[in-house]
Simulated assay, not measured.
Amino acid sequence: MKPTPLHDFAAGYAGRDAAAVRKRIEALEHVLEGLFKIPGINYKIGLDVILDLVPVGGDVIGAAMGAYMVWEARNLGMSKTQMARMFGNVGIDFLLGAIPWIGAIPDAMFRSNTRNLKIIKRHLDKHYPATAVVENGR
């Protein structure tokens, strides 16, 4: 059976290798922090901020998705200190979002998942340099 383009796409995200982990966490961070652009101010928000508008349950779901990034970091063999810092970011995000309705504003500014992605990328770039991707000036 000949692989389809969808199969090739899915295969790039599946697996335990560092390159697949990088793709998964970058995709998750994009969904959580940069899925939509607010017209007029060109500020990106994602599912994390939208979930903050759902009382209690939205914050729990957002925190669970953030914790998934930490779980991926654990599978990469990151240190307990790095993971504790990442869990701290998720916890701050959860507490900021716990303020009904208004909590979405500081949560949109804190961007815990982007912070955690940077921590994971530093680890990947140091320990798995072959997975590094040159981005547009970032």
Score class of each variant (00 low, 15 high):
residue 8 D to A: 12
residue 58 G to T: 04
residue 127 H to E: 15
residue 120 I to F: 13
residue 43 Y to K: 12
residue 7 H to G: 08
residue 38 I to N: 01
residue 35 L to Y: 13
residue 25 I to A: 00
residue 26 E to C: 06
residue 111 R to G: 06
residue 27 A to Y: 15
residue 55 P to Y: 09
residue 122 R to F: 04
residue 74 R to K: 14
residue 112 S to H: 04
residue 69 M to L: 11
residue 134 V to R: 15
residue 3 P to Y: 10
residue 117 L to G: 01
residue 105 I to C: 03
residue 71 W to I: 01
residue 13 Y to E: 03
residue 130 A to T: 15
residue 21 V to P: 07
residue 43 Y to I: 08
residue 115 R to G: 10
residue 116 N to V: 00
residue 73 A to L: 04
residue 12 G to Y: 01
residue 129 P to F: 09
residue 47 L to T: 10
residue 38 I to R: 00
residue 61 I to M: 07
residue 127 H to C: 04
residue 15 G to A: 03
residue 82 Q to V: 08
residue 39 P to Y: 08
residue 45 I to V: 15
residue 57 G to P: 15
residue 25 I to H: 05
residue 114 T to Q: 13
residue 79 S to R: 03
residue 81 T to D: 10
residue 10 A to H: 11
residue 26 E to S: 14
residue 21 V to I: 11
residue 28 L to K: 08
residue 23 K to V: 00
residue 41 I to M: 14
residue 29 E to T: 15
residue 85 R to S: 00
residue 8 D to S: 09
residue 65 M to P: 09
residue 106 P to Q: 14
residue 137 G to F: 06
residue 37 K to V: 11
residue 96 L to Q: 13
residue 88 G to E: 12
residue 72 E to L: 10
residue 107 D to R: 13
residue 70 V to A: 12
residue 48 D to H: 12
residue 76 L to Y: 02
residue 74 R to M: 11
residue 33 E to S: 09
residue 65 M to R: 10
residue 16 R to W: 08
residue 12 G to F: 00
residue 22 R to K: 03
residue 14 A to G: 02
residue 76 L to E: 02
residue 69 M to Q: 12
residue 5 P to V: 00
residue 11 A to P: 02
residue 60 V to P: 06
residue 101 W to T: 14
residue 54 V to M: 04
residue 20 A to E: 02
residue 10 A to F: 13
residue 44 K to F: 06
residue 102 I to K: 07
residue 107 D to I: 12
residue 118 K to T: 11
residue 40 G to F: 10
residue 108 A to V: 07
residue 52 D to T: 04
residue 1 M to D: 09
residue 88 G to P: 07
residue 54 V to G: 02
residue 121 K to H: 07
residue 72 E to K: 06
residue 81 T to F: 02
residue 23 K to F: 05
residue 96 L to D: 14
residue 90 V to I: 14
residue 119 I to W: 09
